[in-house]
């Protein structure tokens, strides 16, 4: 485990919610293949019903709503982390084939597959010998 900041950081850029909850920045891994861009976001506490993915032009927004992390009939006696919503916005540089975007949520992790548009996929150019 590296020594980077492991606590969730609050997203102060988003507009305030009506519900009195904090909004956090989900930690994200992004990797690229020839066909697609893969985005993996840590959003503990969300499931497929409470997560939103929106792509407007080339602005991708991922958001998740989390039920208060309270344990029923128990009182909080010690706290190291806070529970809140998630939101993060990315600007995508490539054209994405928005019809083929796939999203799944498993154990609080959102996985997005953003396939590149056929038009912008790299093409190999055959060079003929003169």
């Amino acid at each position: 485990m590296s020594d980077k900041d492991l606590q969730k950081s609050e997203n102060t850029a988003v507009s305030e919610k009506i519900r009195n909850v904090k909004t956090f920045i989900p930690r994200v891994d992004i990797y690229e293949t020839r066909e697609a861009l893969f985005l993996i976001a840590d959003m503990p506490g969300v499931d497929e019903k409470t997560v939103d993915v929106e792509l407007e032009k080339n602005i991708l927004t991922i958001a998740g709503r989390v039920e208060n992390g309270r344990v029923k009939e128990h009182a909080l006696v010690f706290s190291e982390y806070e529970v809140g919503d998630y939101e993060r916005t990315f600007t995508l540089s490539d054209e994405i084939d928005r019809e083929k975007i796939k999203a799944s949520v498993k154990q609080g992790v959102l996985r997005l597959e953003l396939p590149k548009d056929e038009k912008v996929k790299p093409k190999k150019i055959v060079i003929n010998a003169a």
Binding site: K8, P44, H74, L76, V77
Partner: peptide, 20 residues
Amino acid sequence: PAINVWEKDDSFVVTTELPG
């Protein structure tokens, strides 16, 4: 991981976020 600890009479509940 960071933890939260909850208490009720004779038991504790420890919650922690370990996504994925």
